[in-house]
Computed example of a mutant assay.
Amino acid sequence: MTRRLGSGTLVIATHNAGKLKEIGALLEPHGVKCISAGSLGLPEPAETGTTFAQNALIKARAAAEASGLAALADDSGLSVAALDGRPGVYTADWAERQWFEGAPGRDWYMAMGKVEGMLAEKGTEVDRTAAFHCVLALAWPDGEYAIYEGRCDGALTWPPRGTLGFGYDPVFVPAGRTQTFAEIAPEEKHAISHRADAFAKLVAEQFGG
């Protein structure tokens, strides 16, 4: 049996207020109070891993060791079958503008275009299957940890459709659906997403009977 988290305070290894709110709402019913690494003034560690699990664990361990509390981190991204799993852990990096592409920041339309351009080079019959991945890493200050992996399979479409999502959502159609993640109502998307899958596994193991 994996170590149980129990009630109490959990550090969410993020500086993103939106992510803290989303995760906090999921764990509040289980008596867990979530605070962010950002509110504690903790630095963001370099994500040097080559897998989602490695990067999530780097972030969770850094927050747990610095705070002396249990910490939870996530790492997520898109893998495209015909691109040998890319962009993978570099999903967000593909959206980063280069010096010649305008002001610093992320341009997700540009990132979607990069993926589509690489697929187009492979011809009209290219395999367009893809999957979103989410890995949650739960770490304790003494070094113990648990990993929970979620995924949502689907296929890529072009051009982008919908305005409700973010990132690569406008070009991702989940399996069994005809709408992209950006065309599906947020509450419906959250019920079938890779993040929902990972959190369901965490809740079942940490708070189940």
Rank of each mutant, 00 (worst) to 15 (best):
M1D: 13
R3K: 14
L5N: 03
G6V: 00
T9H: 05
T9R: 15
T9V: 15
L10N: 03
V11F: 00
V11R: 00
I12N: 05
A13M: 12
H15M: 03
N16Q: 09
A17I: 01
G18V: 11
E22Y: 09
E22M: 12
E22T: 11
I23M: 13
G24C: 11
A25Q: 15
L26K: 15
L27E: 03
P29F: 05
P29H: 07
H30M: 03
V32E: 01
K33V: 11
C34F: 01
C34A: 14
C34P: 06
I35R: 09
I35L: 14
G38C: 02
G38H: 04
L40Y: 10
L42S: 07
P45Y: 01
A46Q: 10
T50Q: 14
T50F: 09
T50V: 15
T51L: 13
F52H: 02
Q54H: 03
N55D: 05
A56P: 06
A56F: 09
I58A: 06
I58N: 00
K59M: 10
A60Y: 08
R61S: 11
R61I: 01
A63T: 07
A64Q: 08
A66Y: 01
S67M: 03
S67L: 06
G68F: 04
L69N: 07
A70D: 06
A71M: 04
A71W: 02
S76F: 02
G77W: 01
G77F: 00
G77A: 06
L78D: 06
V80D: 06
A82P: 06
L83W: 12
D84F: 11
R86K: 11
Y90W: 13
A92D: 11
D93V: 03
A95N: 09
A95C: 07
E96V: 14
E96L: 14
Q98R: 15
G102M: 08
A103F: 02
A103C: 01
P104E: 06
Y109V: 12
Y109W: 03
M110W: 05
A111T: 04
M112A: 14
G113P: 08
K114R: 15
G123W: 05
T124W: 00
E125T: 14
D127R: 09
R128F: 09
R128K: 15
T129Q: 08
T129R: 15
A137W: 11
W140P: 11
W140T: 07
D142K: 06
G143D: 09
E144G: 12
Y148V: 04
G150Q: 08
C152W: 11
G154H: 03
P160R: 01
R161C: 04
T163C: 00
G165P: 08
F166K: 02
F166R: 02
G167Q: 04
Y168E: 00
Y168V: 00
P170A: 04
P174G: 11
P174C: 09
G176T: 10
R177N: 12
Q179R: 15
T180H: 04
A182Y: 08
A182Q: 05
E183N: 10
E183W: 05
P186Q: 14
E187N: 07
E188I: 10
E188K: 10
K189N: 07
I192P: 00
A200L: 01
K201S: 11
K201W: 03
K201P: 07
V203C: 03
V203Y: 00
A204D: 13
